[in-house]
Structures are given as structure tokens and as C-alpha cells.
């Protein structure tokens, strides 16, 4: 691990380690209107999910309901929870967590659905 470090690189690293903390002002200023639009979308999706549940779709009922819930969650996460403006690392974190969670499901159902 004896890396040749150029001084310029060193400076860049020294700066990077502390530099981003200076950008703590949260550059994004989302307009109130955007939030209202997202909210309208969420309410509309709720209406859709209630309506669809009234129609007899059989096995598709659950799937559509879960898909709509996933879209709503994405809207909340992306806009309300500011994932849109977050650093890549937070997005990676969320992805890792979801993948692990999905793994639990797949492996558990590898048992349940073949019993």
C-alpha cells in the first residue's frame, strides 16, 4: 500500500475531506408549488388505489396496490425526503437497504412457495 502521493493530490484530499462540510447550506430551495404538486399526485394515487380495489382484478389486485404504493413511496422519498438532492452515498445506502430487504423476501419465499 505504498502509494505515491503527489502533493497536489494531497491538497485535493485534504480539501475534499473537509470541503464538503462547508457546503452545509443545502443548496436546494424547492418551491412550495412543487411540494403541492407532489402532494396532489399522492392524493390522486390514493384515489386510484381505492378505485382499483373496487374492481375485481383477482390476483392483480395485490400487485397493482403494491405498485401504486411503491410509486407513492418513491415520490415521498425523492421529493419530500430530498433524496433527489442528496449525495450519491445516501442513495447507495437506500439501495443497499432495499436490496437486502428484498433478499429476505426472495429467500423466505424460496421456502414458503415450494413447501
Amino acid at each position: 500500500m505504498s502509494e505515491q502521493t503527489q502533493t497536489g493530490e494531497l491538497a485535493a484530499q485534504a480539501h475534499a475531506a473537509h470541503g464538503d462540510e462547508h457546503a452545509q447550506g443545502h443548496g436546494h430551495n424547492v418551491s412550495y408549488g412543487t411540494y403541492f404538486l407532489v402532494w396532489l399526485g399522492l392524493v390522486a394515487l390514493t384515489a386510484v388505489t381505492v378505485t382499483i380495489a373496487g374492481i375485481h382484478l383477482g390476483s392483480l389486485t395485490l400487485i397493482t396496490a403494491m405498485l401504486i404504493a411503491a410509486v407513492k413511496t418513491t415520490l415521498v422519498g425523492y421529493h419530500f425526503m430530498h433524496l433527489k438532492y442528496d449525495n450519491v452515498i445516501i442513495k447507495v445506502f437506500v439501495l443497499v437497504c432495499l436490496v437486502i430487504f428484498l433478499t429476505f423476501w426472495i429467500l423466505t419465499f424460496s421456502d414458503l412457495s415450494f413447501r
Binding site: 388505489t49 389486485t61 395485490l62 396496490a65 401504486i68 404504493a69 407513492k72 413511496t73 422519498g77
Partner: peptide, 19 residues
């Protein structure tokens, strides 16, 4: 608070909309 909301987004169809 948003997480609490997100969990409800899933609980609602799972417990109320199974017709």
C-alpha cells in the same frame, strides 16, 4: 415523519383494500 407516512402507504392497501 415521512417514514411513518411511507409505512402507512403500505399498511393501507394491505389491510383495507382486499376485496
Amino acid at each position: 415523519w415521512h417514514l411513518v407516512d411511507v409505512i402507512w402507504i403500505f399498511l393501507f392497501p394491505l389491510f383495507y383494500l382486499l376485496h
